[in-house]
């Protein structure tokens, strides 16, 4: 029989794009994701260069300008573009420095929660059934508490501070990663490529983290993005309840809490921190969706 040369399934030609280029190609197809990335990058740059961008230090008080409205309102000046808070501090500067806290919180919480969540989840997926059951029932117990309430209890035990709030939020978010990872591992494990790796002699560690885990990343990445935003939200909520960052820290949630009583007289003191939280969370969620589309080869059009 004559040997038939099979044509390649893709029509990309001889020069195949590098993985990074390809990733960008798929990511940039999703406009919402690009918009999210732009906003996220803007927030990130603002957070990094806060001392250079902000017109004033976040704690500097201008006693002559208490509760001054934004510049386009009667009584506002360009000296304080977004107005001042009840203590005469520049809102814009405080919001800019607040971005630092929010990103710091998001990063730390997601790193802690996803690292431990993924490791425990993969182990549960491969463990003998008694250990699997033990881990999952423990996670169910954590999940059965209302998350904010559990975070509150943990903060109450550890003492109110930003660091403790982050630890509490990470503990609350982590079972989601465990369940998600375990479910993904269980659906991947019976597949033939895992058996093939086993036949090739892969040890359990390699099987877990080199063979199976990369195929479970898509839902974990989405969960990490969503957790990033819910970490910011939860930290803001804890701050609002006085259990997170303590005044005078310019954390967005704490800023909301401080100015709660002025909500009717000076709308800007609550609106701007709220909008910052909203945009940051929305941008991260959009970006998370785009990441999933670009990172998951099964959804790619080949």
């Amino acid at each position: 029989m004559t040997e038939i040369t099979e044509t390649p399934a893709t029509a990309t030609g001889p020069a195949h794009p590098s993985p990074l280029r390809e990733f960008w190609q798929y990511f940039s197809d999703n406009r919402g994701a690009v918009a999210g990335l732009v906003v996220f990058a803007a927030f990130f740059l603002v957070a990094v260069f806060a001392p250079l961008i902000a017109p004033y230090p976040p704690h500097e008080q201008f006693r002559d300008h208490l509760l001054q409205p934004p510049f386009w309102q009667p009584g506002g000046t360009l000296q304080f573009p977004l107005g001042t808070d009840p203590l005469g501090r520049d809102m814009l500067s405080r919001l800019i420095f607040g971005a630092r806290y929010s990103f710091f919180i998001g990063m730390v919480v997601v790193s802690i929660a996803s690292f431990f969540g993924v490791v425990i989840g993969v182990i549960a997926g491969f463990a003998p059934s008694w250990l699997d059951t033990l881990i999952m029932r423990l996670m169910d117990i954590v999940l059965s508490f209302p998350s904010l309430l559990l975070a509150l209890v943990l903060v109450a035990v550890l003492g109110p501070s930003l660091m403790n709030a982050m630890i509490a939020i990470a503990v609350v978010l982590q079972p989601h990663f465990v369940r998600l990872t375990r479910a993904a591992v269980l659906s991947e494990r019976p597949k033939d490529y895992v058996t093939a790796a086993k036949v090739a002699g892969a040890k359990p560690g390699r099987l877990m983290f080199v063979t199976v885990l990369p195929n479970c990343l898509a839902p974990i990445i989405v969960q990490a993005a969503l957790s990033f935003s819910s970490a910011i939200l939860d930290a803001a909520a804890l701050g609002f309840l006085g259990m997170g960052a303590q005044p005078p820290t310019p954390e967005w949630g704490t800023m909301l809490a401080e100015s709660r009583e002025f909500i009717l007289r000076a709308w800007w003191v609550v609106t701007f921190p709220g909008l910052c939280i909203l945009f940051a969370v929305l941008a991260i969620n959009l970006m998370g969706d785009g990441l999933r589309d670009a990172l998951d080869p099964k959804l790619k059009r080949s």
Partner: peptide, 29 residues
């Protein structure tokens, strides 16, 4: 003793390039 599976769609790791898939048995053994 090595094996070839029935379903060619499930038997290759979708996250590994063909090169990595082929080199893995050598890397391990």
């Amino acid at each position: 003793v090595q094996i070839v599976f029935q379903d060619p769609y499930g038997s290759l790791n979708p996250r590994q390039t063909i090169g990595k898939t082929l080199m893995e048995p050598l890397l391990i053994n």
